[in-house]
């Protein structure tokens, strides 16, 4: 565990907490894409299949449980909690899951490190995580009015990806045999998807103005 990996995990955790805070205390999920949240449930469910079979550390297992639990509860709130569900932008959030999932399934079957069940599922989760933010970015583009918490949520998620890239660079130079091309490329693609959002986020922060995306 290095400082970049820890910072990445902590920003990831903070992003989830910010979103839960918005949903649980303000009882609003306005501007939040249910499609993206459902894709994250699938990402964590397929990636952490090993939770009972491979033990790395208490830290790892605990974080896996937190990410599984929080993603499930966010989706539950958005679908079944009456007050929260009422604030959901259903008409704007129209991205099709299969449009993103099918290519990821095919790609995971074709390109993986090892052809075992766990490894293919893990690889699928990496590919799907890379594009899972797309429905959220499309929703932002459509609604254009972004409250502070939603903006912070996406900012923290992007930060998590950025720290993971620093972590990989650090590990590549400090650990022998640490080479994971699939993880790196899908992680890089994922981070690049945030670039546009980051640009406008910093612009609004610098000008001390509310975040607004161009039409």
């Amino acid at each position: 565990m290095n400082i970049f990996r820890l910072a990445g995990d902590m920003t990831h955790l903070a992003s989830v907490l910010v979103l839960l805070l918005k949903i649980h205390t303000i009882k609003s999920c306005a501007g939040v894409s249910l499609k993206t949240q459902e894709l994250y449930v699938i990402v964590f469910a397929t990636r952490y299949l090993d939770i009972f079979t491979s033990f790395v550390s208490i830290y790892n297992s605990l974080m896996k449980l937190i990410f599984l639990g929080s993603s499930f509860s966010i989706v539950w709130y958005m679908r079944y909690h009456k007050a929260v569900h009422r604030t959901y932008d259903r008409e704007q959030d129209t991205f099709r899951h299969w449009f993103l999932m099918l290519p990821c399934i095919l790609l995971a079957l074709l390109i993986h490190e090892k052809f075992t069940f766990f490894e293919v599922m893990w690889t699928f989760s990496l590919y799907l995580e890379a594009v899972a933010i797309l429905p959220q970015l499309v929703l932002l583009q459509r609604t254009r009015n972004i409250d502070n918490l939603t903006g912070q949520y996406i900012f923290l998620l992007g930060g998590y990806r950025g720290f993971y890239i620093l972590n990989w660079i650090y590990r590549y130079f400090t650990e022998p045999h640490y080479v994971h091309w699939i993880t790196w490329i899908s992680g890089l693609v994922q981070t690049l998807l945030y670039a546009d959002f980051f640009y406008y986020y910093f612009l609004s922060w610098k000008n001390n103005k509310k975040l607004q995306l161009p039409a």
């Binding site: 990996r5 995990d9 990831h12 090993d50 079979t53 491979s54 790395v56 790892n60 974080m63 896996k64 990410f67 090892k114 075992t116 766990f118 490894e119 893990w122 993971y164 972590n167 993880t183």
Partner: peptide
Amino acid sequence: DEDYFDHDEL
């Protein structure tokens, strides 16, 4: 071995 699953990241 073949079935070794070595992912230590989240």
